[in-house]
Amino acid sequence: MNAPTEFDPTQAHVVSEWKHERPLNACRIDPLGRFVFGGSEDVVVSRFQFADGAKTNLTGGHSTWVRSLAFTKDGTHAVSGACDGKITWWETTAESPTPVRSIDAHKGWVRSMDASADGTLIASGGNDNIVRVWNAADGSLVHELTGHQGHIYSVAFHPLGEFLLTGDLMGVVKQWELATGKEVRTFDAGPLHSYNGGQGVDYGGVRALSISPDGKRLAAGGLHEATNPFAGVNKAIVLVFDWETQEVKQKHTADSVERGIVWRIRWLADGSFVGAISGTEGALVFWKQEEANFYHKLKLPSNARDMDLHPDGLQVATAHHDGHVRITRLTAKST
């Protein structure tokens, strides 16, 4: 992997803040880098122009909170998933986008979505413990993948195109073969889940799932050491698996972010990766594969609930509880 010359996460700094009226749950940058889309604690999908932050609210697609987003690989359409169980297609660049199509995709929340590398498929995971794979062009159902025993918290297509990875509340990651829809194998991310008998709840889950661009590493993020789930007393963690052997190569932590939860992971051009964390603070945390502890942390003004990497590899968008999308440059400040 070749990083741009100015790439330097240790110099990361926020360059833009764009505000939505309600707390944000999710964000994605379109594959051509023109827009950031946000999902929020209302029925709106917000669209921000990357150049200046100009905002358009997209309405009519959902009846409650928008929790997940994805783009078709050509960037022509955004797809939003919400707590009403629907996924809705939007024309990315329309002046005032209206729903292209809306599908009753899941019974319960749509927590996570992703687009396949070849642009033909959209995957969604929901509270019905089912993963569904959709034709990106017409919204028809391609696969219905069953077998998870808990809510689906994360879905991610393998970058080399053959597989889909899905993670659930119980700390189980399943690998599915896209051609057949068959389950191939399971990765044990058990440390990301715990059951608290006193409070009577399962907690944690595979909240972030990402495969390295070379396909050799699988990162699963979330939380561990949860001593009091109802108060969110836990620590952030990322497990990195060797793709071939399924061995956990490293347990990456960020203990200095109190009550941390890793919500998304993106691999960077130098082979390291960044996690968006919420806790008593919001943060972008940068890890190298060989080191358990992070090598840099950028504190953010509010809890970060989602994150995406710009196609230039130098900019990151984060979605925050205070309603802001923040753009962080992974470079030194320009003089």
Binding site: G200, Y203, F230, G232
Partner: peptide
Amino acid sequence: SNYDTHHENFNFHIEQ
């Protein structure tokens, strides 16, 4: 027991 959901109220209410 229990509903004292200062954190992730919605996830925990789904369960309970």
